[in-house]
Design a protein around this nucleic acid. Structure first.
Lengths: 233, 233
DNA sequence: ATCATATCGATAAATTTTTATCGATATGAT
DNA sequence: ATCATATCGATAAAAATTTATCGATATGAT
């Protein structure tokens, strides 16, 4: 029960899926069903869920409510994380307005920027404040999570400022390699990297299957146990 | 030489780093140096790079230009990928304006939307067009890559439309689980999933190290061989 | 009540990924 | 020219992850 790192990345996906199903009024669900809808191997889903819940029962699967509760507890979504976002440009604004986050335990309280044109405005009811107010507010409000969406040439110093302000986890959307001092969690969200994987997979598909003609578009995939689609993200 | 999947995700990171170094005028670089700056295990970098280049030489490392060239060739960045983006809301606009993409082989030609207020406007010189023009344009221009940034309730049908339009690779930014028909590459970019990992790591840090006081902020990490930071993205 | 079956959960095998070890070699110093 | 050394590249070991196998059990049908 030590290091289910790869698993952790898949859990929110299950949660997102389950919430959709829940809204549809479904009250229990089996791992095989989840797997089919998510284009994953059933065995894989079973293993992942077994790790965080034992509410599963033969024949019926998991009770929807219990499974969602267990997932949320494991992911720590009960105690929502307050966050500050620095760099309220287009990407920053997009993240501030990303409704999904609220549902998954992330609450962006405010954005910070140095652009006078942005300061004072609001995104989804969240204020954009002058950067110099960050240290004071972060300390006072005990905000531990920071989102870094500044231009590249400001990344380094902004990161340092965030750490000095007491922020302990930084979600870095810039392409600049940063170094986190001990005790500070740094996670790089490299969109270019994701695209590279997509591009590589597309190339592989062309090479292996040849440039074929049309492909029919179904909404659901055939219920094979083994699927190569539905990559992690 | 078959399946370096995990590796592929790291390669663009090296590329981003190398380009920065190149701008600084550095002409050759060792894997140990890369590893240090990127907070990775040196052995890991060596293995990754050995896979895609053999320009490395003892004592000096890799010639910068050759290494970058090999990386770009492997990642297929020579032949830039043209893409259409569907759903020009805040997130869509942010991606359309994301300058980094151009440098890494992704070229978003246009955005599509159904909102009359958006149609006709431009983001970074790229037009936002009415959705009904997507199928015709995608076919005519042979665009194979699509970026899906529509609201959740439109995800399913929009995805189907993209596939019908001949798009073969879809980068899905919605939380809706989609099923790709055979021959279509679907990659889910789940920001909530990324955040979950960050959140979990932060929680782990608190648990293990206790809630300690201040942390000094250095710009570079100590040159340890083994680092647990600098996660994948 | 009995039985066939879908599903879980545990154990084990296979695969992939990471980390380690070590010899070969080009570089720069003596 | 010789030598010490940093670094690559290959091979091997270790660790993590995925996939497979199989018995146990609750459910719903007969």
């Amino acid at each position: 029960m030590e290091k289910p790192l790869a698993t952790t990345q898949r859990l929110p996906k299950y949660l997102a899926y389950l919430k959709i199903r829940q809204k549809q009024g479904i009250e229990s669900i089996s791992t095989s069903r989840i797997a089919e809808d998510l284009n994953m191997a059933a065995i894989s889903v079973r293993k992942d869920l077994a790790r965080i819940s034992n509410a599963g029962r033969p024949k019926t699967g998991y009770p929807m409510d219990a499974l969602i509760a267990d997932l949320e507890r494991f992911l720590g979504y009960g105690n929502a994380r307050d966050a500050f976002l620095v760099g309220a440009g287009r990407l920053g604004q997009a993240l501030m307005g990303y409704a999904q986050f609220a549902e998954y335990g992330l609450s962006i309280l405010a954005g910070f920027d140095i652009d006078p044109a942005l300061i004072g405005s609001e995104i989804d009811g969240k204020p954009i404040l002058p950067l110099e107010k960050l240290p004071g507010l972060a300390r006072r409000m005990q905000v531990k999570v920071g989102i870094l969406t500044v231009p590249e040439d400001a990344a380094q110093e902004t990161f340092a400022l965030m750490v000095e302000s007491g922020i302990r986890a930084v979600w870095n959307f810039t392409a600049i390699p940063l170094s986190a001092p001990p005790g500070v969690v740094l996670q790089n969200e490299n969109l270019a990297a994701s695209f590279a994987v997509l591009s590589k997979r597309l190339a592989a598909t062309f090479d292996e299957e040849g440039v074929s003609g049309e492909v029919p578009c179904g909404t659901f995939a055939p219920p094979n146990e083994k699927r190569e689609g539905g990559h992690q993200s």
